[in-house]
Design a protein around this nucleic acid. Sequence first.
DNA 1: CATGAAGCGGAGATCCAACTCCGGTTGGCC
DNA 2: GGCCAACCGGAGTTGGATCTCCGCTTCATG
Lengths: 246, 246
Amino acid sequence: MNDSRGRNAAATTATATADASAAATAAATGSAGKGLRRDAAENRARLLRAAWEAFAEQGPDAGVEEIARRAGVGMGTLYRRFPTKDALINELSEVIFESILEHARMSAALGADRAPGQPSGLEESLFHMGEVMAGHHGCLSRLWQASPPPDQDERRTELWQLMDRMLDQAKASGDVRPEVTLTDVYLSVIALRSLVDDTAGQAPDLWRRYLEVVLAGFRPAPGARPLAYQPADDSLVRHGLPKRRH
Amino acid sequence: MNDSRGRNAAATTATATADASAAATAAATGSAGKGLRRDAAENRARLLRAAWEAFAEQGPDAGVEEIARRAGVGMGTLYRRFPTKDALINELSEVIFESILEHARMSAALGADRAPGQPSGLEESLFHMGEVMAGHHGCLSRLWQASPPPDQDERRTELWQLMDRMLDQAKASGDVRPEVTLTDVYLSVIALRSLVDDTAGQAPDLWRRYLEVVLAGFRPAPGARPLAYQPADDSLVRHGLPKRRH
DNA sequence: CATGAAGCGGAGATCCAACTCCGGTTGGCC
DNA sequence: GGCCAACCGGAGTTGGATCTCCGCTTCATG
């Protein structure tokens, strides 16, 4: 294990995790859990929390039996609440995504109203993404996967529009050079997601270091070579990636 | 699909792929295939090639039956040559790794003898890694996984020593700023691996763009902030990551 | 060319994780 | 309290993947 060097890394991570946990509870007892008998609604919430823990500890290979056991309910209950294991995972992804989108909305709304020297909205959003993802490592495989349910698709579009706006702001304030595209940001997020998942067990904060390098790579520099390989358009961002196969 | 923009991307990729294919054949007919009857050795080679293709097309979930079918042999033959499916995958990883190590040896040996403005050995090696990995997407999950067989472990150590040397050279020639550590390079490679795999189907060259950004992030820049999160040591590089779970 | 050790194919045994089914129980409304 | 729809548990089914087994065939050697 890593002993959390650097600034307040551990503290911010803990906060993000707590937020997400609260969000999971909210999702469980909120709209999706309405119309259920009290015991049923509570079991639904327990299942989501159990799944969240199980996936964080064992990755998405954690078995449904394990999840039911942790939640203290039977298999039947699990499958009455969630028609498939995938549905359960999607629900969790939803919670993660919601947190990311919410933060991006606030960050974008804040716009360029920042003290000079403060991190740009783009930077802030990317670090927030990392934190939320680190708090849910193991549940990330469904994030940004192609062809999500339509309502989720709409919200994904919104997120990337916000990111695009923040990218423009960052360029305007000189934090990012003009040739950087939304696709570049997208690629960084995809890579960040994998890195968070891969290093979660051994060095849960190291993704920050990677993200700093990438952000440095976005920054304008006098003698910098232009990027040679131009991505044509943002179709990748708009359509997402196919389901992971590993 | 992507239409291979920028420089000679397609050409270099094709070369790397051909190299790797040849390497696969060599591995099959070489030392590992010695002592086998002619038909058996040939079947071994066919199996490796079939597995290589199947994994590239369908990811590591490609079934053993599919591999045997492609190779034109029966299941029995597959399992007589390779005790488990994992063993087969490890053999392929071995081939990929061999190509990477070989290139790193040459690149490191060339040292600082480069025309000014030419890419550093580090840069060249990273691009080569990307090319080889892109030519074998789907077979990468076992690469750099923790606790490989001892002989492989030794070679992994060698690779990262070479990378470390090239990192020093790059710092000396001003291509990389001093605070960048071997762990940073390692993280980039891990991220690159995932990115190559994730984007292989839709934008097989886009990893180049990502890698350029990272390399730009490594480059010295006058007003650059120092990286805040210091990795303590290179234990991650030395020990590798645990098996992926996705 | 005769011999047998090594190799071959592929049906089916085995394993494992997701999912279903149903007899018994519980919560909420009258 | 009484009723019943909704809910619960968990043993068992299903499906899909890996791996084994054995009667037949092929290669290499004397």
